Amino acid sequence: MNIKKIILSIPVGLYCLTAFGQQSSATLPKCKNGFVVVAHRGSHLVKPENTVAAIEDAIRLGADYVEIDLRTTKDGHLMLSHNETVDGRTNGKGLVSEMTWEEISKLSVNSTDGQMYKIPTFKEALKACKGKINIYLDFKDADAAQAYQEIAEQGMEKSILVYLNKAGQYEAWRKTAPQMPLMGRLPENVHTREELKAFLSTTSLKAVDKASGAVLLAALKTEGVSVFLDAQSKDENPVKWKALMHEDVQGLQTDHPEALIGYLNQNGWRNGLKPQNP
């Protein structure tokens, strides 16, 4: 998710405080490593993004989460796609929301290794991840109740972190599954612990992907909110990783999971011991 389009800045109101009062019971999925590595769209520089193969390679590399993007077909099937269309990614063209699953299932995903790849359903992605890796679910365009039903059918309620992308998704998830951990972006006007507490009183998040300044980072840690920063880019490198790593940052989302994990292991930071920025 190179650009997050939603900023969770609209208070959900007193009604939500009452109706969704159980949200504080949400907890993040457990990780065996102290510093979290999120493989952006899977190991997509090795295998095509948002495919089972990309998920499996992220697992092989030892990532803690695989980030995948969820959308809905014309006939109501949940499947993986970052973009609104299949253009460029496959040998077909069209909006995901205007195509049936049968049409999409016949497409071939573009690749550079000569292998055949298909767009997976959400159920196929869940099965590939179960017991092996957590899911950072970029909730692009889908129904919370339907998604949660498929998650529950696989018994993976404790393995998913949902990233909110649109207005209304917070309320939908809190109504459907109050215990599900949610992630989003803080409003631009939140800088202090007092401002953070006021925001969290109406919009309870367990993780955010952007936070600047030692004061806000420390406040997030005190309030039990993890910070998983977006590092993904073509020119990721140790200098850029180190610039993002602060004592109150818990993880990075990356396009280069193998290199990042190697860098963390080399410096003894995989268990959460990280350098502090000047």
Rank of each mutant, 00 (worst) to 15 (best):
D87R: 07
E150S: 07
S105Q: 13
Y65Q: 02
T90K: 03
A144D: 02
L264N: 04
P178Q: 04
S9F: 02
D230C: 11
E258N: 10
G62T: 08
Y15K: 12
V239Q: 13
A198P: 10
G114V: 05
V96I: 15
T72W: 01
M79F: 13
I10K: 15
A147N: 10
I133P: 06
Q266T: 09
N33R: 14
T51P: 00
Q149I: 12
E236C: 08
P278G: 07
E195S: 00
I160K: 00
K166G: 10
A172H: 01
V215F: 08
D69P: 08
L78Q: 13
D255P: 00
S212Y: 15
Y263T: 02
L216Y: 00
Q149H: 07
S233Y: 07
H82M: 09
I133H: 01
A152M: 08
K234A: 15
M156C: 09
T176R: 03
D75R: 02
T85Q: 04
Q154C: 14
Q250V: 03
G224A: 02
Q253H: 05
T27G: 04
L28Y: 04
T112W: 07
K5A: 15
G42Y: 05
L220G: 02
V38R: 09
C16L: 04
D113N: 06
K30C: 02
A145N: 04
C31F: 03
Q250H: 15
K30N: 08
T51G: 01
G34Y: 11
S43P: 08
K240A: 15
N267I: 01
Q149Y: 02
H40K: 06
G76N: 11
K234I: 12
V249S: 00
D87H: 04
K242T: 15
K5S: 14
L8E: 06
Q253P: 10
I119M: 14
L14K: 11
S24M: 12
P29H: 10
T192C: 01
I104H: 12
K74D: 07
Q232L: 11
L161D: 01
R89G: 13
N134R: 09
K118R: 14
L264M: 05
